[in-house]
Design a protein around this nucleic acid. Structure first.
Length: 233
DNA sequence: GTCCCGCTTG
DNA sequence: CAAGCTGGAC
């Protein structure tokens, strides 16, 4: 946490307003660590409701475990995750995740001994695990203080007029991690609140009249959409 | 930049 | 009917 005090207070202020608006979120939905990891992969560019269907399919078939997924034919796995979209790609990703866990005898406590940077590097080497999925797993499974950046985060804070100097994943992550205390509870709750807000209010087409942040928001990108002053040609 | 891809919402 | 959904691989 080395950033400017002004930005630090702004980021905390946004968190507090979201918390006051929505209350504690109790994330991540998922009853076991493995279920959280599966959810993190299946939710890539997919609505959570569809992810739940896929997870329910796995659960009711008794296949929601690393070993079951390793032993299952790819085609069967693809059918089960069908509702979450990209089913062939996601079946392959789940296989890769399960194979990786197998290297540690499916024992999360072994992995939990690794420092965060090392664990993150390992996660990134798994097929289908990129920065966001990696950080979601680090945060919600391993309880590491890592700030997760997603499309909702970028959209919300751009509209609020807060942007990092470098517009990529690491740049966004540094914006938050350089300006907030590295506390698991704070990062977990903040991300959950951003998602809640992004789904319900700060959508692509924002519901600004119902937004509890409308006072501090310029609504920039959507407000700057081209206006043809001369009217249609 | 393109592809992967079904389901929900407007 | 189209747009959008907690991305990542190539």
């Amino acid at each position: 946490m080395t950033g400017k005090p002004e930005l630090r207070r702004e980021l905390i202020g946004i968190h507090n307003k979201l918390l006051a608006c929505y209350g504690v979120q109790h994330w991540w939905p998922g009853e076991t660590p493995f279920e959280i990891m599966v959810g993190a992969i299946l939710t890539q560019s997919a609505a959570w409701g569809n992810v739940e269907k896929a997870i329910t399919n796995l659960k009711s078939a008794g296949k929601l475990s690393p070993s079951a997924i390793r032993d299952m034919p790819m085609v069967d796995l693809a059918k089960m995750v069908y509702p979450s979209g990209y089913y062939n790609a996601k079946a392959r990703k789940l296989k890769a995740l399960a194979e990786w866990l197998g290297k540690y005898k499916d024992d999360l406590s072994r992995l939990d001994r690794s420092p965060t940077v090392d664990l993150r590097q390992e996660l990134l080497e798994i097929y289908g695990v990129g920065p966001e999925t990696s950080d979601a797993i680090l945060l919600y499974v391993f309880k590491r203080p890592v700030f997760v950046i997603d499309a909702y985060t970028r959209r919300l804070f751009r509209r609020l007029g807060v942007e990092p100097p470098v517009d990529n994943y690491d740049g966004w992550q540094a914006l938050f991690m350089d300006n907030l205390p590295h506390e698991f509870e704070l990062f977990a709750e903040y991300h959950a609140l951003i998602v809640k807000h992004g789904k319900d209010i700060c959508r692509k087409s924002p519901q600004c009249t119902e937004c509890c942040l409308s006072n501090e928001c310029s609504g920039k990108p959507s407000a700057t959409k081209p206006v043809h002053l001369g009217g249609p040609t």
